[in-house]
Amino acid sequence: MQHSPTWTRNLSEPKLLAAGEDWDAVRVSADVAVRAVRDLEARGVPVGPVLHDLCSEQAYFLTPPGTAQDWEQDGTRALGSGSWVVLAPPEWDGLLRWVRDPTDGPAHTPADDLAAALADAMATAEEAAR
């Protein structure tokens, strides 16, 4: 059975939503996000919703509320209370696309696991650029 997070209800088009209550978000470049998702999957970590913004080539991992308060990782930006993020409805197919749909798995990606996967993904991206 799929769950439908509260914030997805009554969402019929992309909408600006406040972070910090149902979720925080970690923003990172889309190419690093793809590597991080693969790493998390390979380690058996449940991956929560991940949104790809095709205009900015940024991705947003939804994390537990409060994540942004202590988040410190180069190459990323944590968005918590006081921040806003445009989120799309589940299964949206436009310039915002879900890499991991919010109804397909857990509500969040665990912050510690995400931090480790992003660090590995960024190191791999740097090596590939050399």
Rank of each mutant, 00 (worst) to 15 (best):
S81Y: 13
E72H: 13
V37R: 06
D24Y: 00
R97C: 12
E72R: 15
T63P: 01
A18E: 15
S81A: 14
Y60E: 00
P89C: 01
P90Q: 08
R43V: 01
G94E: 10
T63W: 05
L54S: 11
W92P: 02
L96T: 06
R77W: 06
E91G: 11
W92R: 06
D70T: 15
P89M: 03
W92M: 02
T67N: 06
R35T: 05
A42P: 03
Q69K: 13
G48I: 07
E41Y: 05
A42D: 12
L95P: 09
T103Y: 02
R77Q: 15
S83F: 14
K15E: 14
D24N: 06
V45N: 04
L96N: 07
P64F: 02
E57Y: 15
V32Y: 04
P65M: 08
W71T: 09
V45G: 03
V50G: 01
V47D: 08
V28W: 04
W23N: 01
D74Y: 11
V26M: 12
S56C: 07
P64L: 07
D22A: 12
C55A: 14
A33I: 01
L51H: 00
Q73A: 13
D93L: 12
L95C: 10
G44F: 07
V37L: 01
A88M: 00
D31T: 12
L40N: 02
